Amino acid sequence: MRLLMIEDNESVTQMMELFFLKEQIDVTFVHDGKVGYERFLKETFDLLIIDLMLPSMDGMTICRKVREVSDIPIIILTAKESESDQVLGLDLGADDYVTKPFSPLALIARIKAVSRRLAPASNDDKILSGTTHSLQTEYFQIDKTTREVLYKNVPLEALTPKEFDLFYFLIEHPRQVFSREQLLERVWGYQFYGDERTVDVHIKRLRKKIATEEHLFLHTIWGVGYKFDETD
């Protein structure tokens, strides 16, 4: 897994370099927003870690521009008190956020969770598990290998990695209600230490992409959580 971390605070990158080295993670550090975005365009990375406050080009702009051309997973770094920035970052297509000051181990855990989701299943794994990693409902076809979603055989707008993971999980468990905490643990793949609104933002984005005049598909069960249901 190759990472690009765009962070102007050199003390933060120096601290993280030690942890990345210990975990044998290949990472490129850039301290300027515009330079970081240009590196992203020229080179191949598997994950972006972007601070929101950057010189030359801020993290929000980078996130928006990246999402125009790629569905690469994005983790944003934001100040703890900047809740509006966290929500806006998720709204622009970030998959997760880590608040400053943060624990290096918490960031490593998020990176590992993404790494597990990106790892393709081998043919032997598919045979042993007895699944082709595809699901079909009355309205949707969703393929976990190609990460494509069809609605009535028509491709949907591209989903971000986290949107896809969330949608796939909910379709796997039709009409079953999951709390925000359960979704964070089952879909994000680790205990979430931040704000649960990340689930709300991803559900909101998904609804914009999949809901029709006839069907909402993703339902809010007030005081409990969310479910996928085609029968409404």
Rank of each mutant, 00 (worst) to 15 (best):
R2L: 05
M5L: 15
E7H: 05
E7Y: 08
N9V: 13
S11V: 13
V12P: 02
V12S: 08
V12Y: 09
T13R: 03
M15L: 15
L18T: 14
E23I: 08
E23W: 04
I25G: 11
H31R: 08
G33D: 00
K34T: 02
R39K: 13
L41G: 06
E43L: 07
F45R: 06
L48H: 08
L52W: 04
L54Y: 07
P55I: 10
D58Q: 02
G59T: 07
M60S: 01
R64P: 01
R64D: 11
R64H: 13
S70I: 08
I72K: 12
I74F: 10
I75Y: 12
L77R: 05
L77E: 08
T78F: 09
K80E: 11
E81G: 05
L88C: 07
L88E: 14
L88S: 11
L90N: 06
D91A: 14
L92V: 13
D95M: 13
D96W: 12
Y97L: 14
Y97C: 12
F102H: 11
S103M: 10
L105R: 14
L105T: 14
A106P: 00
R110I: 00
K112A: 01
K112N: 14
A113W: 01
A113T: 07
R117A: 12
L118T: 13
A119T: 15
A119K: 15
A121D: 10
S122F: 03
D125I: 06
L128H: 09
H133F: 10
L135T: 05
E138I: 05
T145P: 03
T145A: 06
T146G: 02
E148M: 09
E157M: 05
L159K: 00
Y168L: 12
Y168K: 03
I171V: 15
V177M: 08
R180Y: 12
L184Q: 11
V187C: 10
Q191R: 14
E196A: 14
E196V: 14
R205K: 12
R207I: 02
R207G: 04
K208Q: 07
I210L: 04
L218P: 11
L218G: 03
T220M: 10
G225C: 07
K227E: 12
E230F: 07
E230K: 01
T231S: 13
D232W: 03
